[in-house]
Design a protein around this nucleic acid. Structure first.
Length: 448
DNA sequence: TCTGGGGTCCTAGGACCC
DNA sequence: TCTGGGGTCCTAGGACCC
């Protein structure tokens, strides 16, 4: 199951004026176009295109453009997934807008099975649409990679105004589609491998599936061999339902404006560390390593630099410990100018946590890397973090912060009295309301 | 002026062991 | 000229995903 133009669909659910109107959603900092409704795709605006290059064209075409509203999309995603689980418990939530489902195959001839499965797909699509307002594609096949290939086919049918529900298994045009499907559209084949495969004569999904195992293993790796086998109908990628513990956690953002101000950057890094710590606690995890990094802009003039430093920690999810460590890392990673004295204009900073484990399972070192707090001190810190999280949950995100994040009360006030965002905060000028998660942002229905 | 953020897995090569 | 055989662990870099 794939949601069609998911972020655009979420925007449309609560704003009927967007129905039939072209819609686009931007990445963080309003930088790139990361979701496009069918109308915008038809205009030829590519995925991931920089917004500023298309701003005028989008305006001229009457495209409604939104900043990304992850609170809304996350909540809508949960609704869609919950709806899928009413059909089968065997659901793998693969991403915010995709899931894999396993269902029993009905008895009968291949043609009959195919027809029955396509009917099932239409049933699922109809229920998700009715319950959540999100249009989806549902496509079946005997392996995940083939199911994704079927989904590509469904996408093509949808673009041509057809029914986006396909069962590849038993379909009379199955081979025809796989012979037509570009190898670059195969799940697991990116730009680099796509070009290499074309050079070796594997320009379509069907051709890739016929390439010899040894060639794939030698020229690429076992991952691509698995992809080829999956295209042959041999399942190599099982349904993953047990949530796995993450290995890393990254929090980073581009700045609204590039800056050389180490104090501002330090506040941004402290904020990322605090947010990462909050997320760690929410997931019941601790981290044993932290790094902080800064990068200048990737494009244009001026000296370019990307630097990071890391530090081992006694496994922790404590905001104060992680913020302090992140600031130490930043101090080592930050360089103000290149060898010729030209200042670096930093565009982005972030924090990465690694060596993550569930709380309570951390391995203690023989030689502690830092003074180990007493049990009583640890208990007090835990209680403090619980109070911090509770206050921020109840009264809003930046209610209680560590001072290193920058103090909200010292910020300039805007006309309505709320604190003005600091310069390093990202641009987000076209955000829709968080319709489903904030009482004060609920949609209002007016009679007549 | 303006180009996102957050992940996973695999491999090669270096350093070390006996 | 020529230098064994069999391992582990770690890291950086490259590929992929959404």
């Amino acid at each position: 199951m794939d949601c069609s133009a998911f972020y655009c669909s979420c925007e449309r659910v609560f704003d009927p004026s967007l129905e039939g109107v072209p819609v686009a959603v931007l990445s963080n900092n309003d930088g790139c176009i990361i979701a496009r409704s069918q109308e915008v795709k038809d205009l030829g605006i590519p995925m991931g295109a920089p917004f500023f290059k298309h701003r005028d064209e989008l305006a001229a075409q009457g495209v409604r453009v939104f900043s990304s509203n992850y609170t809304l999309y996350g909540d809508m995603s949960r609704r869609v997934m919950a709806c899928l689980e009413t059909f089968t418990p065997d659901v793998e939530v693969y991403s915010v807008d995709e899931a894999f489902l396993t269902v029993p195959t009905p008895e009968g001839s291949p043609e009959a099975v195919c027809a029955a499965m396509e009917a099932r797909a239409r049933e699922i699509r109809a229920r998700v649409l009715r319950w959540t307002g999100i249009p989806v594609r549902v496509s079946w096949a005997e392996t995940k990679t083939l199911a994704k290939a079927a989904s590509e086919w469904a996408k093509e049918k949808l673009g041509a105004g057809g029914e986006p529900c396909v069962c590849l298994w038993g379909h009379p045009d199955r081979d025809d589609w796989l012979e037509r499907m570009d190898v670059g559209d195969v799940w697991g084949v990116g730009r680099r491998w796509g070009q290499s495969l074309r050079d070796l004569g594997g320009s379509t999904a069907a051709k890739l599936s016929r390439m010899p195992d040894r060639l794939l293993r030698q020229r690429f790796n076992v991952v691509l061999l698995r992809t080829a086998m999956e295209l042959r109908g041999v399942s190599c990628l099982p349904l993953e339902q047990a949530p796995v513990t993450r290995q890393t956690l990254v929090k980073s953002r581009s700045f609204g404006e590039p800056t050389s101000d180490v104090r501002a950057i330090s506040q941004a890094v402290a904020t990322h560390a605090a947010r990462a710590a909050e997320k760690l606690r929410a997931e019941g995890l601790v981290a044993g390593r932290i790094s902080a990094f800064v990068t200048t802009k990737r494009f244009g003039s001026g000296p370019h630099r990307s630097g990071g430093c890391d530090e081992a920690l006694p496994a922790t999810a404590d905001t104060t410990a992680l913020v302090a460590a992140a600031r130490r890392c930043l101090r080592r990673a930050y360089v103000d100018a290149d060898a010729r004295g030209r200042p670096y204009r930093y565009r982005k900073a972030g924090v990465m946590l690694a060596e993550i484990r569930p709380e309570g399972t951390e391995q203690r070192g023989l030689f502690p890397i830092a003074r180990v707090a007493s049990a009583a001190d640890r208990q007090r810190q835990r209680a403090l973090m619980e109070a911090l999280d509770a206050a921020n949950r109840r009264f809003g995100k930046r209610t209680v912060v560590v001072a290193a994040q920058g103090c909200p009360s010292t910020l300039r006030r805007t006309r309505d009295g709320s604190p003005e965002a600091p310069g390093w905060e990202m641009r987000r000028e076209r955000m829709s309301p968080r319709y489903t998660t904030r009482w004060d942002e609920l949609a209002v229905v007016k009679p007549g």
